[in-house]
Simulated assay, not measured.
Amino acid sequence: MGRQGWQGRRVYGSERGGPAGPVPGHAYVELVGGPLDGQLLDVTGWSEAELAGGALLATDTGLWGPGGRSDYIPDSSAGGSCSRYVWNGDTP
Rank of each mutant, 00 (worst) to 15 (best):
D60G: 14
S76Q: 13
L63N: 01
P35Q: 08
V23K: 04
C82W: 12
V43P: 01
G54T: 11
D90K: 06
S70W: 03
A55H: 01
A49N: 03
H26C: 14
S83D: 15
Y72M: 06
G33W: 05
H26A: 15
R3Q: 12
G68E: 03
R3L: 13
Q7E: 12
V29R: 14
Y72P: 03
E30I: 07
G53R: 11
P35R: 05
L63V: 08
L57I: 13
A78K: 08
P74N: 03
T91I: 12
D60L: 00
G38A: 07
P74W: 01
V86I: 15
P92T: 02
Q7M: 04
D90C: 15
G5L: 03
A55L: 04
G18W: 04
G34M: 09
D71M: 10
R10M: 06
D71V: 12
G65Q: 09
Y85P: 03
P92I: 01
R10D: 10
D75Q: 05
C82T: 14
W6H: 03
Q39A: 10
G89K: 02
M1V: 13
W87L: 11
Q7T: 11
Q4S: 08
G38D: 05
D71E: 08
G53K: 06
H26G: 10
P35S: 14
S77W: 04
S47W: 00
G13Y: 04
L57N: 11
Y72E: 04
G25V: 11
P22M: 13
S47C: 01
V11F: 08
S70C: 15
R10L: 11
A52Q: 06
G13M: 06
D42F: 07
W6D: 10
D75P: 03
V43W: 01
W46D: 10
T59Y: 03
G79A: 11
G25M: 12
W64K: 07
Q7F: 04
G33L: 08
D37P: 02
P24S: 14
T44S: 14
G68H: 02
L56F: 01
S47F: 01
G21S: 13
P22H: 03
V32G: 04
D37S: 15
P24G: 11
Q7V: 10
E50T: 10
Q7P: 00
D37Q: 11
Q7A: 12
D90N: 13
G53V: 01
G13E: 08
